[in-house]
Computed example of a mutant assay.
Amino acid sequence: MQRAENAFSRLLAGLSGFSILVVFGVVFAGSVSRYLFSSPLQWSEEVAKYAMIYGCMFGMAFAYLQGTQITFSIFIDAVPAPVRRKLAVAVDAATLVLGGILIHAGLIFAAKRGGIMASGLGIPMYWAQIAMTVGGACLVIAALFRLIAFFTRQSSGGEAS
Rank of each mutant, 00 (worst) to 15 (best):
residue 81 A to C: 01
residue 26 V to K: 05
residue 28 F to K: 00
residue 33 S to T: 03
residue 12 L to P: 14
residue 93 A to C: 12
residue 17 G to I: 08
residue 10 R to E: 05
residue 82 P to R: 09
residue 154 Q to L: 11
residue 6 N to K: 10
residue 12 L to C: 13
residue 90 A to L: 15
residue 156 S to N: 14
residue 2 Q to I: 12
residue 34 R to K: 15
residue 60 M to P: 05
residue 18 F to H: 01
residue 32 V to G: 02
residue 108 I to V: 15
residue 7 A to S: 08
residue 129 Q to I: 03
residue 31 S to E: 03
residue 61 A to N: 03
residue 136 G to K: 12
residue 83 V to Q: 10
residue 149 A to I: 01
residue 15 L to Q: 09
residue 90 A to E: 01
residue 75 F to G: 01
residue 124 P to E: 10
residue 99 G to V: 11
residue 18 F to E: 01
residue 8 F to N: 02
residue 129 Q to V: 03
residue 32 V to W: 14
residue 1 M to Q: 07
residue 106 G to I: 03
residue 137 A to C: 01
residue 130 I to Q: 15
residue 11 L to C: 02
residue 117 M to W: 00
residue 22 V to Y: 08
residue 104 H to M: 09
residue 95 T to I: 04
residue 150 F to D: 13
residue 133 T to M: 05
residue 129 Q to M: 10
residue 65 L to Q: 12
residue 102 L to T: 07
residue 62 F to I: 00
residue 89 V to D: 02
residue 20 I to G: 11
residue 114 G to W: 09
residue 90 A to W: 07
residue 33 S to V: 02
residue 41 L to M: 14
residue 69 Q to I: 14
residue 67 G to V: 15
residue 122 G to W: 10
residue 16 S to I: 00
residue 42 Q to M: 08
residue 54 Y to E: 04
residue 135 G to Y: 14
residue 18 F to S: 07
residue 14 G to R: 11
residue 71 T to N: 11
residue 72 F to H: 09
residue 160 A to P: 05
residue 28 F to A: 11
residue 122 G to H: 12
residue 126 Y to L: 10
residue 5 E to C: 13
residue 105 A to D: 12
residue 67 G to Y: 15
residue 24 F to Q: 02
residue 141 I to N: 02
residue 118 A to M: 12
residue 82 P to N: 07
residue 113 R to F: 14
residue 1 M to F: 12
residue 11 L to M: 11
residue 28 F to N: 00
residue 48 A to S: 14
residue 92 D to E: 13
residue 114 G to C: 02
residue 144 L to R: 10
residue 32 V to D: 04
residue 17 G to W: 04
residue 153 R to T: 05
residue 62 F to M: 05
residue 31 S to I: 10
residue 93 A to N: 01
residue 136 G to R: 10
residue 142 A to Q: 02
residue 123 I to R: 02
